[in-house]
Design a protein around this nucleic acid. Structure first.
Lengths: 224, 224
DNA sequence: CGTGGACTGGCAATCGGATTCTCGTTTCGA
DNA sequence: TCGAAACGAGAATCCGATTGCCAGTCCACG
């Protein structure tokens, strides 16, 4: 669980030493501390199922000081943003792998969409993709979309770029027919990424939008 | 601006009297006060462009007491929810009118989608639809979607129902072909209602998703 | 090896806002 | 007209985030 807890009593001593040695300079030490803060925050999110942990809790759990926290982060929002970036990093890598497993343009696009849908489903029976509860982070990303869209765009660039490339390839192969690829990409991205929001609204009812449904809708929407 | 400001010096005296008389019983008086609180909150939202007004401000502006506020609302969230309901009420009425102006099932569906898109665009050159700045309220509705989906569903029921009926009618007329109408309705609703979010992410770029784009995407997505 | 400045840990202090509480006053229905 | 309920005005509380303060530590440099 606590990936980088140096104080973890189970961690072998040699590892602690190695870490201490290799991280003996100031910059590395700072990075290690930042990582500990992030880990602590992830743990708290997983436990509480929401982002309403207090900075104090994060600091206590990561055995650091409040002073230190504000040394590295300008505030709680910056911490959350960092968590969001971590998540996107992880997802991007996984999406890349999923796409590479296919060769046909349309199949690659499909793989991407299905996988993205899975990543964006913050509930599910058991946090299938990714190591952490993503609900509170998705929530934060929406706030960000409203308060500071550019920041979010920047963070999502890797994913958006991948989608646009896949769409372009599919268009080139004649698998789909769209006018403006970027515009289409927006609609697809929205349909897939936020369908969890709608699924949630469907609620109890047996109406659930699956990854397949989203794919089918996008496929036709793109004029395949 | 201040629809129900009894203290408005410009308001004719006879109106004040009429209001006082007709609202002389407790229940009506309470309703008038609630309305004043809502009006004050709308004004503050319009002025600030965000929902970060304080309860104190609302109370001061509506010439009421903090005590009174908490008499009628369980907290700030309840106030925001009331504002959301007002908005939905207004939008529903307008959507109904837009739909009634058409007779062909597909044209009615189209009218609905285009108009809904306009309502959900909280920016625009000048708050085209509705009397108030809706951005902060949209923002609140997303929080609600996460924290208490059922509440939001309940509030949106009129709109959802209308969409489902239009879809059913279109299906019956053979204008579109979908399996599960409700599922399709979710996807459409999502595509239309939250495209402003994506438009915002597109940002500066000349990539903007218009109501027409959303309509086209939905139309194909539904297999027309 | 010594030292000054940067980094830290641990708190207490400050701040902004929501929510509650207190206590006279006013209002309204019976 | 009487008493309960509602009201107005503030003061008082609560909660967290964010800052300020001060005394120990660490580290690069001379």
């Amino acid at each position: 669980m606590a990936k980088t807890h140096a104080r973890d009593p189970d961690a072998p001593t040699w590892r602690q030493r190695a870490v201490s040695k290799s991280l003996s300079n100031a910059r590395s030490r700072a990075e290690r501390r930042i990582q500990q803060l992030l880990d602590a925050a992830f743990e708290l999110i997983d436990e509480k199922g929401s982002a309403d942990f207090t900075i104090q809790e994060v600091v206590d759990r990561s055995k650091q000081s409040l002073r230190g926290f504000y040394q590295y982060f300008d505030g709680k929002d910056e911490l959350l943003f960092a968590l969001l970036e971590e998540n996107i990093r992880e997802a991007t890598q996984d999406l890349g792998a999923a796409v590479e497993a296919e060769s046909e343009p349309l199949a690659r696009l499909r793989a991407f969409i299905i996988r993205l849908h899975e990543w964006c489903e913050p509930l599910g029976t058991g946090r299938k993709r990714g190591a952490h509860n993503r609900l509170p982070i998705s929530e934060f990303s929406m706030q960000l979309a409203v308060k500071d869209p550019e920041r979010l765009v920047a963070a999502m660039t890797p994913v958006s770029r991948m989608l646009i490339e896949l769409l372009d390839a599919a268009v080139a192969a004649g698998a789909v027919r769209v006018g403006d690829t970027r515009r289409a990409a927006l609609l697809v991205q929205q349909t897939v990424m936020y369908s969890w929001l709608m699924s949630r609204l469907a609620g109890k009812a047996r109406v659930q939008v699956s990854a397949e449904d989203a794919w089918a809708f996008c496929l036709h929407g793109l004029g395949a």
